[in-house]
Amino acid sequence: MTKVSGTGVYDFKRHRVAEYPVEFTDKPEAKPGAGQSLPSSITLSEIQRDKLTRIAEANWIKSGDSKPKNPFDPQLVKEIYETELTVKPEGKSQRKTVPLQRVMVLEVSQYLENYLWPNFEAETASYEHVMSMILMVNEKFRENVAAWSCFHDQKDVFRGFLERVLRLKEGRDLTIAEKTNYLVFMINAFQSLEDEIVRETVLTLASLRSWHSLSYGRFQMELCLNPDLIKKWKRMIKKESDDAHKQGVHLDPLSSVEVNFLRNLIEEFLEVLDHKVFYQMHSVNEDDELDAASTFKQVNDASVLYCERFMEFLIDLLSQLPTRR
């Protein structure tokens, strides 16, 4: 916030949106230029002239009863994600961000409702397809419009989508911007517990099963502090064992996504906090040799933003009755 000189009145700036870690200037009516952020609005003429609008008209925008000219192309989804929705590192600071206007154009063209969701298959959808859906859901929340309504017609498929989201990081190293977008999606999901199709999946991530991932000492301490949970824990273990026996599989709770979800997120946060928030910078002397005395630390803004969103995620878990228990 910025204090208006002599008046004692404060001008509150809107908090930056996590998906698009842009900087806001204190100068009023600042016009975007080199190195400045794009405005968070877009005109109709800009939308009509945009190349994404032409792509949308050919592939997913419906006019009257006529269908788009081209069939679904998974490669187009990958291309749009890589060229329009991916944060490209700009040195170690990663200052180049996902342009907000590109996401806005895709949202206006109903990219999620008309292209990504109707053609989503949990078994075959690409990583870029899932991440694009995550970004478009986040954008709906940013614009404060109904985010989950388009999913209600296929609840089973939506459950498959959420399961793909939970397993999205397996075998893949996400960029810090993608990790932040992922966190924002989980924040939005846990803030949507009133929606049945969201609630039945995300609540399992903060259930008693997550205690399987506790160390033995911490687990024993928690049961001693909460004796009423001992019977509930035993019932849960028996049910898990019976289900595994019926399916003819070996019971291994630690292999479950639900058990490891929170633990993995916490470990990821600690890794970013310890090794990504600050990085070393060196100045070079006249002989082009590193001068140890001139080494200093530089803040990685993208990593700081990730840490902020992780704290917001934890606060949400601890402030809602279904998850804080």
Score class of each variant (00 low, 15 high):
Asn285His: 11
Ala125Cys: 02
Tyr216Asn: 13
Ile80Thr: 01
Asp173Glu: 14
Lys238Ala: 14
Arg142Glu: 07
Val198Gly: 06
Asn264Asp: 08
Ser149Lys: 13
Arg14Asp: 12
Ser213Thr: 07
Val272His: 01
Lys3Arg: 12
Leu290Met: 05
Pro39Phe: 06
His152Met: 14
Cys150Asp: 07
Ala30Val: 11
Asp287Phe: 14
Ile187Val: 09
Thr204Ser: 11
Trp117Phe: 06
Asn119Trp: 02
Ala122Arg: 03
Ser283Gly: 13
Lys232Met: 01
Glu143Pro: 00
Pro74Cys: 01
Glu143Ile: 07
Asn285Trp: 04
Ala30Leu: 12
Glu113Arg: 10
Val137Gly: 01
Gln75Met: 12
Phe141Val: 08
Arg14Phe: 11
Ser303Met: 07
Leu254Gly: 06
Thr25His: 11
Cys150Gln: 02
Asp243Val: 14
Ser283Met: 14
Ser241Cys: 11
Pro99Cys: 09
Leu205Trp: 01
His212Asn: 09
Ile237Thr: 00
Glu289Phe: 08
Asp11Glu: 14
Ser63Thr: 15
Val98Asn: 02
Leu251Gly: 05
Lys231Ala: 08
Glu196Asn: 14
Thr295Met: 14
Tyr115Ile: 04
Gly64Thr: 02
Gln36Gly: 01
Glu23Phe: 02
Val257Ile: 15
Ser207Cys: 00
Glu90Gly: 08
Asp288Ser: 15
Pro32Thr: 08
Gly91Ser: 09
Gln36Val: 07
Asp291Gln: 08
Glu222Met: 11
Val284Met: 15
Tyr81Leu: 11
Lys69Trp: 00
Leu305Ile: 12
Ser41Val: 09
Ala293Gln: 10
Thr295Tyr: 06
Gly35Asp: 09
Glu194Leu: 08
Ser294Tyr: 00
Gly8Asn: 13
Gly248Cys: 11
Gly171Lys: 15
Pro89His: 05
Met1Asn: 04
Arg164Ala: 05
Arg199Trp: 02
Phe120Ile: 01
His152Phe: 09
Gly35Cys: 04
